[in-house]
Amino acid sequence: MKILICISDVPDTTTKIKFTNDNKELDQTEIQWIINPWDELALTRAIELKESLGEKIESITVINVGPAGSEPTIRKALAMGADNAIRVDADPKESYFVAYQLAEAIKSRDFDIILAGLDSADYNGASVGGMMAELLDMPSVSAISALNIENGKVFINREIEGGTQKLEAQTPFVAIVQKGIAIEPKIPAMRGIMMARTKPLEVVAPANADCLTENIVYELPQPKGACRKFTEENVNELVDVLHKEAKLI
């Protein structure tokens, strides 16, 4: 079985977000880039499967749409345990554009399961996996919180509004994963880090793709007013305020 994981690089989730150029662009000066947390969990699960199933998982490939500057993120994925990587050499402008690039790069290749994160910690499109699946005319299952392979069959749990379904899925398909797929992202081992540079990283030219959306301006949330504080002794007053002033309870 061959597994592909789509990865993007996003600002570290602890980063304070700032904008420049009249709030038209993200201020990248103090940003540390990381693998999108959802994608990192997807990759972690793929590696876990390979560790437990051995040769039944023939290969783990990661693919990224990004400029050369995103290669450290790709190398991190290789250090964690991916076998090889593909980078589509394009600036990831918006979801449809990225999904189109991915689909073009993937369609001539052969994968059984394509993993994508449910959301991304940058522009929160929650969209690339589903768009790519449609462009590949491949089935997709969303919000997967567990993925197992037994005797060549793929079993998944997916969260739906109001519950969890246990499903058997036929391959090939696009698995759009969320938290729970793996507990914590894998920390790369020292040997993995040193071997990352020796693993193949194929750079492919981008296809001609349209952009359907454009972020024209950003804004930060309005700062909150001062917090009105109460003590253990006057909890009743708080309840009174919530009831009478704020009318919330």
Partner: peptide, 17 residues
């Protein structure tokens, strides 16, 4: 180097987690 940064991050993640 890229590797040195990755090692530092791995150690930091391990220590904090």
């Amino acid at each position: 180097t890229e590797e040195q940064k990755m090692i530092r991050q791995a150690a930091k993640d391990f220590a904090e987690r």
